[in-house]
């Protein structure tokens, strides 16, 4: 039992919650760049949190269902239709064999998550189904979805059709504030440079992908050229010699030698990954303690929203 990829769209990738414990082999963690939307997708479908879904960037994915099951779309605002009929996102819908599920192109945000009840049944590579194309690992053959691919999934006859009330859904804006925890190389940036960094507006460049978001704006200089290569965490903000910040995402390289001014808060990186070239970002410093509190609050908010059923 499966769904067939009729059209893969711009970039559609199978993702679970990511590949962990293999950084020392040089493997990045992959996984959904917008974890918030991914989590909602699985929660609405009543799947375990790490269940494999398709991350659709920009849009254009079309699947043909060969199975009776339930689907749900969350994340970027991409028009969803089943057999040509418009359907709401953030809501569980029933499909049967022969149905065509189509996604249009994102009207706000740029990544959405299309999940099925109990998830796609993909053989994990090194403990995860997360696709990292650069590393040729995960997904079906370590690659993005292609027309004709079969995505196995189980037959599910009944499931509660939950939806998330509109007032609780994320709003993807064209500009946002990213909270930053100052990092271990912060001392190499003078007070003036730090003020410039936190006081300026940066524009998302064309070079933004699952590895990192390159930003353009006032250049930030550092009093060292580089550091001895060291591990890089999710959200780390590197400043290469050209002074233009790069926020590192899921498919980043595991080690690197550019100095880092700090790390963006993970929940803000999730939201930032919905920005497209030309959108803007402003950075705000926060303490480690405040960051931790923000993460706990965000989790309580996400899990505290009771879902409504049709």
């Amino acid at each position: 039992m499966s769904m067939i990829v009729a059209q893969p769209g711009i970039l559609s990738l199978l993702q679970d919650s990511g590949r962990w414990g293999h950084h020392r082999l040089g493997l990045s963690n992959g996984g959904p760049v917008d974890r918030e939307a991914f989590n909602y997708c699985n929660r609405l479908l009543q799947n375990p949190a790490e269940t494999t879904a398709v991350e659709v960037s920009v849009g254009g994915l079309q699947l043909e269902s060969k199975v009776e099951t339930f689907i749900c779309l969350t994340g970027a605002n991409m028009p969803l239709s089943i057999n040509g009929e418009d359907r709401a996102a953030w809501e569980v819908h029933k499909v049967i064999a022969g149905d065509t599920i189509s996604l249009g192109f994102a009207q706000s945000g740029c990544r959405s998550y299309l999940g099925v009840a109990d998830g796609f049944t993909i053989v994990p590579a090194l403990g995860s189904t997360a696709t990292v194309v650069r590393e040729n690992i995960g997904g079906l053959n370590g690659d993005k979805l292609r027309a004709g691919d079969q995505l196995p999934c189980p037959v599910i006859a009944t499931r509660t059709r939950y939806y998330l009330e509109d007032r609780f859904r994320p709003r993807y804006q064209k500009t946002m504030t990213v909270r930053v925890i100052p990092g271990y190389q912060q001392r190499h940036f003078s007070r003036a440079e730090q003020r410039r960094f936190f006081g300026s507006t940066y524009t998302v460049s064309e070079r933004c992908d699952r590895m990192g978001y390159r930003l353009e704006g006032p250049a930030i200089s550092c009093n060292i050229d580089g550091i001895v290569s060291e591990g890089i965490c999710f959200g780390a903000i590197q400043l290469p010699p050209d002074g233009q910040p790069i926020v590192l995402l899921n498919d980043r390289q595991t080690i690197g030698g550019y100095p880092k001014i700090g790390s963006a808060l993970s929940i803000d990186v999730s939201r930032m990954s919905q920005l497209v070239a030309g959108n803007t970002v402003h950075f705000a410093p926060i303490s480690h303690h405040t960051a931790r509190r923000a993460l706990h609050l965000a989790q309580r908010f996400a899990l505290g929203q009771s879902l409504q059923a049709r």
Binding site: G21, H22, H23, R24, V228, E230, G231
Partner: peptide, 14 residues
Amino acid sequence: LVDLVPSYASVLIL
């Protein structure tokens, strides 16, 4: 321990 990255003279602990 979620993951760690040993390098030349550092260990990143996640």
